[in-house]
Structures are given as C-alpha cells and as structure tokens.
Design a protein around this nucleic acid. Structure first.
Length: 504
DNA sequence: AATTCGGCCAACCGCGGAAAA
DNA sequence: GTTTTCCGCGGTTGGCCGAAT
C-alpha cells in the first residue's frame, strides 16, 4: 500500500497542473489531485468501496488517503471501477436503443444509462455527442427515420403509445413503463400553439441540393420540422437540418417583414422569437439550433459565435452570398430559375445583410408575396394536393399547405407547387440504421428530388398527417419509396440499390 | 516525416436537488 | 424555516491516438 501511495505522490508531483489546483469542494488544506487516475489510486478506491460501500464519497479522501475529491472518486467508480461495467463499442442494438431513448428523453444520460446495463451516462453522452458531430458533418439526420417518425407520431397524437418502432417490440417494456417527460413539454407546446401551429408548414418545391450544395443542410428543410416534435428532437433535427452554417438572420427571412401576416407565417414556422428581432444584423449572430416555442434551453441572444462546433459541410457566409451569381453545382433547372430570378423587390426587402441574395431574398420575396395577399386563412383551396376528402387529422395541415400553394406566385422565384411528400412507412426490422446511413452514403445526396404526394401517394393511413412533412430527399428516392412502401426495409432491395449506386 | 484533423475517451466543472444539521 | 453538505447530472474540456493530407 505504501508503494501505491508513493506512486500516487509521484504522480502528483509529475503533474504540475494538478498540483496547483485545489479541490473545488475542499477545505483548502489538502491539495487534491486532478487528472488521470493511476492504477494505484484505482486500487485504493476499489478497496475502500469494498470495505465501506458506495456513497459518502467525501469520506474516501479522509479515510483512504486518496488525494481525490469525493466527486472525482464517485465518477471514477461509476464510470470505470464498479463491477459489471460493459466496455467496448456499443452494439447495434445499443445504438438503436440510445437513439430511441434520446428521442424520448433528450439529454437525460443517466436515465438512458439505466436502460443500458453496464453502460455509463458518460459513455452514452460521449457516444451521442460524437455521433451528433459525425452526422452533422455528413448532413445526416440524427435519428433513424423510424425513431423520428415515431416520436413525431406520439407527440402528434399525444398518446403514450410508446413503442418507437412499429413492429419492433424489443424495447416495448421500458417504453411502456416510462412516462417520458417529453410529452408534457409537447403538450404544453401544443396547447400554447393551438390555433397557431396546427400544421406543418409546406416547403416550396425546390430540390434541396439545388439550394444548398450539401443538400440536406438546406434551410428550407428547417421549415418543415414539425412543431409538435419534442424540443430536443426539433433541435437535434434542426441541428441536422440547419447544418449549412447559415447565420441566424439568414435562416429567418421573416425578420424583415413586419406586418401581422408575416408574423403569423413566421410563427407558423416556429421561427418567431423575441430574441430574434434584435439579433439579425449582418449575420454576425450565428444561427442557433433553438427555434420556436421559446422553451429551448439553447436559445440565446448573443453576438458571439455559437459554441457548438459547426459542421464541416457548412459554407461560409460569403459563399452563400454568392449563390445568386454563382450557384454551386449540381443544380437542376428549377434551381437555376430559382437562384437567378431575383425577386423584383429583393433589394428593398430590408435585408440587413448584403450577402443575403439568392435564397434569402427569395424567401423574403415569398413572404412579402404572402403578406401582400393578406388574409391567408380565408384562401380557398383549389389545390390539387389538399384533397377535400382528406381525413380530418390532416385537414389543418392541408389547409395551410394549400395556402402556401395558393400563394405560390407563378413569378415567384420559388415557382412553388405545393408538395405533400409521402411519409414513408418505416422500417422496423431492427436493422442497425447505420445500414440506412451507409445506403445514404452510397446513394449520395445528389439523388435528391422532391416528390409530390399527389403523384405518388393517396393518403389513406393514419400516417397521413405526416404527408405534409417534406422529408429529406434521401428518404424520397425511388428506392426508398419502394422500400418504405412495403412498410419495411427490404434488405435485398436495399442491397441491390446499394450495389447499383456503387457501380455508378 | 511533419502537420492537421477528427474520433474517442476520461475527467473536470458548475449547477441543482435532496437530505441533514 | 434556513443553511449546509452531499450527491448526481449534464455540459464541457483536454489529452491521446490514428488517419489523412
């Protein structure tokens, strides 16, 4: 034991940094060590816990001679020394479970860890944070589509129907047993927004990769993130969707329109925040993930850059500003029309940023068009999309979708036709969604296209309300449509499709 | 070969809640 | 009822390592 103590002491002396630091809980008399634990310290701690049990961590330092604060001891024990810890990479099942849990709970790592025997909250947290970064860079959604859809479904229905994955009941038990707090939040949000946000805004018919070089990071996609999603889902999704690196005011074109209609529109997009008003100058305020309902923990009015790491795929603002003149390839024809058709009044849009040409001005133009037509809720629906016979559940959605369509000025840079994209029935076969990921990677985001639901799908199922979601294009490739239309991923098809793409 | 970058991991820090004094 | 202490949680930081440039 004395040898151990010496080793600890040596380590303390080696570490000038830690030697000079005092325990934040300590009395100042004892210099407590920080930094990596040595095996000797571990042994001391294990020995202590074996004798005295867990808890009373501050006593460890007193009685074991360990120069560590109680917090440090508890952390070390919980994360590394306690028995039955499972080490190594997460299994596919665990990864899926984490995604499901995160969709349900948000950043409740400890609670998530409770559902993953042998895993620690720290482990899960690290995994998730790494995953966020990775997926943001790749322009991929954080959640498997089935998790995303299920979370939306549940929030929409306001039922504790749990069971993230239809047909996949592996985690049904814990799902059933949990009263996920997200529901409260969602319900509150729904209550607050009742009559304001009963729908999911529609996305103009612009292919994503024609707007953004990186496709899925397209700001317009942010607009269809369901307002009924749990905040953490929304934010995470926004995180993915907004990974283009747009500055806040670029993202929020309605800042410049002051009349009620535009406010209503902005509200409908979940973009309305008191903080936003003053935060839109010259793009110096970075886009925050926090949007809408005002109960986001990350929404801050700040002129400093958002701390979170920006995805590598982001484009500098200057590049965005250059869209109008030199849109990056690949661009399809509609995108060219869109980008090169400067809104006639774009220059007097009040756009604060000289760089905000192209998409932003187009959005502003669109918003102005909306405001000029006034009284949008009275618009009748001649839409080929908002079918009169639509089920009640989606009527509100379609109403607004129709509005958007009606307001799609033929001369608008959007040339918008309303699109109601099919919500694909989701794979529930339990395959790791990395397969989906890899499939995406194989297909690439270039294969992006928006499909109009009236071309491909007649709403019949309870999933219809999802039809007004404009889904990331990668989900709407014909291959995906085929896959999902069978209410489950056909592995063979997926493999074939992957092969096809890999051969290209 | 050197540098850069990103992933991974361990640990620290600050905060807040619960229990004890 | 108030203050103090303990503990747990979530966010963040920093180091190490391997791959890429």
């Amino acid at each position: 034991m004395s040898q151990m103590t010496n080793e600890v002491d040596d380590n303390v002396h080696r570490n000038d940094q830690t030697r000079s630091q005092l325990n934040d809980e300590g009395n100042g008399d004892v210099v407590l060590k920080k930094g990596p634990w040595t095996s000797a310290e571990d042994a001391i701690l294990v020995n202590y816990v074996n004798k005295h049990g867990e808890g009373n961590w501050n006593a460890v330092q007193k009685y074991s001679g360990l120069s560590r604060c109680g917090k440090s001891c508890r952390l070390r024990w919980a994360n590394h020394l306690r028995p039955n810890l499972k080490k190594g990479a997460f299994t596919a099942q665990e990864e899926r479970l984490i995604a499901e849990l995160h969709a349900k709970m948000g950043n409740k790592w400890a609670r998530m860890a409770a559902h993953l025997p042998g895993r620690t909250d720290n482990e899960i947290k690290n995994y998730w944070n790494t995953r966020i970064k990775r997926r943001q860079r790749a322009g991929l959604p954080l959640y498997p589509p089935e998790v995303f859809l299920q979370a939306f479904k549940e929030s929409k229905h306001g039922q504790g129907t749990s069971g993230i994955s239809d047909g996949d009941n592996r985690h049904q038990d814990f799902l059933d047993k949990n009263n996920y707090e997200i529901h409260d939040a969602v319900f509150d949000s729904l209550k607050e927004n009742q009559g304001i946000l009963p729908y999911v805004p529609e996305l103009p018919n612009i292919s994503a990769n024609s707007i953004l070089p990186n496709g899925l990071g397209s700001p317009p996609y942010c607009n269809f993130v369901p307002s009924t999603l749990p905040n953490h889902l929304r934010e995470s999704t926004m995180s993915f969707l907004g990974s283009s690196g747009l500055s806040r005011n670029e993202f929020y074109p309605f800042d410049h329109i002051k009349d009620n209609t535009s406010d209503k529109i902005a509200d409908s997009f979940g973009l309305h925040s008191p903080l936003d008003r003053g935060a839109s100058s010259h793009g110096s305020i970075c886009y925050s993930h926090s949007l809408s309902n005002g109960n986001s923990s990350t929404s801050k009015l700040t002129t400093e850059a958002v701390k979170s790491e920006l995805p590598s795929l982001q484009y500098p603002e200057t590049e965005f500003g250059s869209w109008g003149t030199s849109p990056p390839p690949p661009l399809n024809e509609s995108a060219d029309v869109f980008i090169h058709s400067q809104p006639p009044n774009a220059l007097d849009s009040g756009c604060s940023s000289p760089h905000n040409s192209g998409l932003l001005d187009a959005l502003v133009y669109q918003a102005k068009t909306l405001s000029s037509k006034n009284n949008c809720s009275d618009k009748s629906s001649n839409s080929s999309v908002a079918t009169p016979g639509d089920i009640a559940e989606s009527s509100a959605l379609n109403m607004y979708a129709t509005e958007w369509e009606d307001y799609a000025d033929p001369v608008s840079p959007f040339c918008a036709t309303s699109i109601l994209n099919e919500c694909p029935a989701v794979s529930t076969n339990g395959n790791s969604w990395d397969e989906w990921e890899s499939f995406q990677t194989i297909t690439g985001n270039n294969n992006v296209k928006m499909q109009s639901v009236d071309q491909v799908w007649a709403p019949k199922s309870e999933n219809q309300y999802m039809s007004n979601l404009t889904w990331p294009d990668v989900l709407l490739t014909s291959e995906w449509h085929d896959l999902y239309s069978e209410n489950g991923v056909n592995q063979t098809i997926m493999t074939d499709a992957s092969d096809d793409f890999s051969r290209q």
